[in-house]
Design a binder for these strands. Structure first.
Length: 273
DNA sequence: AGTGCGACCCGAACGC
DNA sequence: TGCGTTCGGGTCGCAC
């Protein structure tokens, strides 16, 4: 389940592997992965493009090519494998980028939820999916007044708005629980009723949780070998998420699980009033 | 406009 | 080699 830290780790790993390689062909085994443009246009346009750089915006991986950006969202289970051309394809490798060095970059996604876009470089930030994204967690413009403005017309629980990628990018279901636990805020609390102090705590803890997870992703990533996938691991220490029935790390109260906006939500009733 | 929910997927976990 | 059902995760599209 890649969230921002996992995407960051994948980005760094791939940069060490495939920069400067040229895509000489692409095979698309599951066409619905390609969201834009059409599969035929996608194939035609990406052919013979060199991979110049790899970036990230929110949870989107951005392969910078010569004329295009290839945007790739891993959703829950997307990962990239780099394998020699003659390696048998496994059944979950849906998009195969044939490189000019006898290797292939293969997008593997068991759940088939991941999406790709191929967009002209000059347009990439001005059109979907990147145009609507909110601030990166480490953006200096992420302030209490920014959140106040964004939250003022919403009547939703803070847990729900933390997942809104149009406000802050990169927070997924797991990290949202962790951020609220550290901030001692009830996930059901309406976001527009939060105090300045609580909003500042959310900002601080968002940065802390995501940066810590990026570091953990960097240290636990499996190194690439020909038979192994390149993918982010999610192995850092979680405080509340998934801990239903276990004692709170702070007060020993039993962690409970509820649904907020349809999403499994874990919290401590005593610490997060 | 904001809000809620089903759809998209399939492996794992669960219930019997 | 048990089998059918439920769940979850991020995002979008649709209905209200």
């Amino acid at each position: 389940m890649p969230e921002l830290p996992e995407v960051e780790t994948v980005k760094e790993t791939l940069k060490r592997q495939i920069l400067k390689n040229r895509i000489i062909d692409v095979k698309i085994n599951y066409p619905k992965t390609i969201e834009f443009p059409t599969v035929e246009e996608f194939k035609k346009q990406i052919k013979n493009q060199k991979i110049v750089d790899i970036k990230r915006r929110g949870k989107w991986l951005m392969f910078e090519l010569e004329d295009y950006y290839l945007l790739s969202h891993l959703r829950m289970e997307g990962k990239y494998n780099i394998k020699p051309t003659d390696t048998i394809q496994n059944k979950h490798e849906h998009v195969i980028f044939v490189l000019d060095n006898k290797f292939e970059l293969r997008y593997q996604d068991t759940r088939k939820f991941g999406k790709m876009h191929l967009i002209k470089k000059e347009e990439v930030y001005d059109r979907l999916p990147l145009s609507e994204l909110g601030l990166e967690p480490n953006d200096e413009n992420l302030t209490v007044s920014y959140l106040k403005e964004k939250y003022k017309n919403k009547n939703l629980p803070i847990k729900t708005v933390l997942l809104d990628q149009q406000i802050i990018v990169g927070i997924g279901n797991i990290y949202a629980d962790e951020i609220l636990f550290l901030s001692k805020i009830n996930p059901l609390k309406k976001s527009k009723t939060l105090t300045n102090k609580q909003l500042q705590l959310i900002i601080d803890n968002t940065k802390i949780v995501l940066e810590k997870a990026i570091k953990a992703g960097g240290t636990t990533i499996r190194s690439y070998t020909s038979s192994e996938g390149v993918h982010g691991l999610f192995q850092h220490e979680l405080l509340v998420h998934g801990k239903e029935g276990e004692p709170c790390k702070d007060c020993d109260e039993t962690i409970v699980k509820i649904k907020v906006g349809g999403r499994g939500t874990y919290y401590c009733k005593k610490c997060q009033k």
